[in-house]
Nucleic acid binder design. Structure first.
Lengths: 147, 147
DNA sequence: CTACTTGCAAATGCTTTGCAAAATT
DNA sequence: AATTTTGCAAAGCATTTGCAAGTAG
């Protein structure tokens, strides 16, 4: 993935820097997590690396542009990012527990159907989607009903 | 709807005020639109009513709590709100044009199926969802390909 | 009269930006 | 050497909050 980052940067005449590679590394090593800028900085500090917040903001924006990250918005006022897995054929959706905030990723078989239904009904070309489901995770369900 | 607002406010021992009713009125008269706080203030000013932004923020939060409004997040850093139509049996989804920003509401028949699929697969109790589809609307499609 | 609500201005919190110093090409 | 990137501090912007004055019950 680092090689791909380097070649993308070259293609766009942007520079290869240690900061950009480290930030991508954090995401590669945190698969399945959804990190905000603050958390990226914390992960970096855990590895004894200090990169300024401004640089992290600029790097994640660039990484989204280059297609390495996807920007997520769970409605808590913080933009979070996740790595885009290029081997992933299907998209995934997020299921979020309203009590503990835990996020599960799933892969519904129905999504392709829904997308073609919508594009037929509306005439839009659907390029992208953002599907979130909110509710109670099994643990919180148990905790709340069990006592 | 105003009567329902009054009775909900009474039930929760919150006060009935002209500001709260006016803000609800704006939404009732803007069905199908997705207003942010700034736009609500502008609509009020169009009617020669001045309500402070702080009050609008507090009112929409209350109206969401009471179930009259739904908070939306289209990822542009602004919370928008839409009226909750209680006669509406089905939920609706938003289809957003990435060029002109136009938002179409649709009602997919597949949503119920996807929700039950997800709740089976994950064990979550799904209470709510937020489904957005991004792409090109027919107009922008024509404009972009046609020249 | 009491408690809630409003409006203002200030504060907050995330994100962006200007600029000089540092790093890449 | 030229140009981009970084880090810092300041600015920006939507939203929230403290508080005195106003209003509903």
């Amino acid at each position: 993935m680092y090689e791909e980052l380097r070649s993308e940067l070259k293609k766009r005449k942007r520079r290869i820097t240690a900061q950009r590679e480290m930030i991508l590394k954090i995401f590669l090593e945190s698969k399945g997590r959804h990190l905000g800028v603050e958390e990226v900085c914390r992960e970096l500090l855990n590895r004894n690396i200090r990169i300024s917040k401004a640089t992290v903001y600029r790097a994640v924006e660039l990484l989204v542009d280059l297609g390495f990250l996807r920007r997520l918005n769970f409605g808590d006022g913080i933009y979070r990012y996740e790595i885009v897995d290029r081997s992933e054929v299907e998209s995934h959706q997020h299921v979020i527990c309203r009590v503990c905030g835990k996020i599960k990723e799933i892969n519904s078989e129905m999504v392709k159907k829904i997308v073609s239904e919508i594009s037929e009904k509306t005439g839009y070309i659907i390029e992208n989607h953002d599907l979130k489901f909110y509710g109670l995770c099994p643990d919180c369900k148990r905790r709340l009903s069990g006592g």
